[in-house]
């Protein structure tokens, strides 16, 4: 009993920290240009395929056989591919629409999302079906000795730890550095930020790049944990991540992380204990979203009022 509960908690935390990593990109882009970037899930997907490509076609076996070489390289490649796609997306799809009505970039985001999925399907060898993805970390499972033992894969532990470290680092970056302050200033008043010598275009590109890097890393970790990837992974997890960002209060970094963890836990525990089992676990996520938004429309950490003096 206890160990079932605890192992679902562990599952929830793994899934939750993955969703949190993706949610950070949603929430940051929204914070800066108030755009729900529905193509962000595809950035996550593209990162996984980029990482896998480097593993399959690029790296020699001397490296791929040793996780301590392969893992950092594949993470970096995945992040770089995602950064590239995210920055190109901003430059060519969203920047021309910066001053257009809000609906135009939103529809564009949906279009970009479909285009990226189809591009991978057409151009990545074998992407018409799910592709196996190697476990990039130490193989095997750690049994935490509580009750009958709580199993958690080493890759799962890596996912939780790396996500939290990255989220913490991001928060410090935004709170305490020159460019971080420039990001917050731009999100609050773009014209005045410009008068402080800040180049908003550069800030926006940086925001997309950071969101992309986190999504790319998440993509590689996802593949490594589930051991196969498919072109729909971005859509499913993107919806969860978007929900997490809204739940935590969109625009808020801490909110995205907490929102992600809550969703991961609700999915794991709901699938285990609530009627309907895993067939209904998606339902519980959105039930929680609805309940939270009824009582706190701005999400956990969202600001109740946006004062513009």
């Amino acid at each position: 009993m206890l160990s079932t509960f605890l192992s679902q908690i562990a599952n929830g935390l793994v899934l939750g920290s993955l969703i949190a990593l993706i949610a950070l990109g949603y929430t940051m882009v929204y914070g800066i240009i108030t755009l729900i970037n529905f193509a962000h899930g595809e950035i996550f997907m593209v990162g996984a395929y980029g990482g896998l490509a480097s593993m399959t076609y690029l790296l020699p076996t001397v490296i791929t056989q040793r996780w301590y070489f392969a893992l950092p390289i594949v993470l970096v490649v995945g992040a770089l591919v995602s950064i590239l796609v995210a920055v190109a997306m901003e430059r060519f799809a969203y920047r021309p629409l910066r001053n257009a009505p809000r609906l135009a970039p939103l529809i564009t985001a949906l279009g970009v999302s479909v285009a990226l999925q189809e591009a991978v399907r057409v151009f990545y060898p074998g992407a018409t079906a799910a592709i196996p993805f190697p476990d990039l970390f130490i193989q095997g499972t750690l049994i935490i000795p509580i009750g009958d033992g709580v199993p958690i894969r080493y890759t799962g532990i890596l996912l939780i730890v790396l996500s939290l470290v990255l989220a913490f680092g991001l928060e410090r970056f935004v709170e305490r550095t020159r460019m971080g302050r420039a990001m917050r200033a731009t999100s609050q008043d773009r014209d005045v930020a410009r008068l402080m010598g800040i180049n908003p275009d550069r800030v926006i590109v940086l925001t997309f790049a950071i969101g992309g890097a986190l999504a790319g890393i998440a993509g590689v970790l996802y593949g490594s944990y589930l051991n196969n990837i498919n072109i729909d992974m971005g859509f499913q997890n993107g919806i969860f991540a978007f929900t997490a960002a809204v739940l935590g209060g969109i625009g808020n970094i801490r909110g995205a992380v907490i929102g992600g963890l809550v969703i991961g836990l609700v999915k794991a525990l709901g699938g285990q204990y609530l009627p309907g089992g895993t067939a209904y676990d998606y339902v519980w996520i959105f039930v929680v979203l609805i309940i939270v938004l009824v009582f706190r429309p701005q999400g956990f950490f969202g600001e109740t009022e946006r004062v513009r003096a």
């Binding site: 302050r181 008043d189 930020a193 010598g197 800040i198 946006r306 513009r308 003096a309």
Partner: peptide
């Protein structure tokens, strides 16, 4: 007045410093 309302007084001044900082 057009301050950055959700930043502290100190942070507002630090944003003003942006153009003179090198990082």
């Amino acid at each position: 007045i057009r301050l950055f309302p959700s930043m502290t007084a100190m942070e507002n001044v630090l944003v003003g410093r942006h153009v003179r900082m090198k990082q």
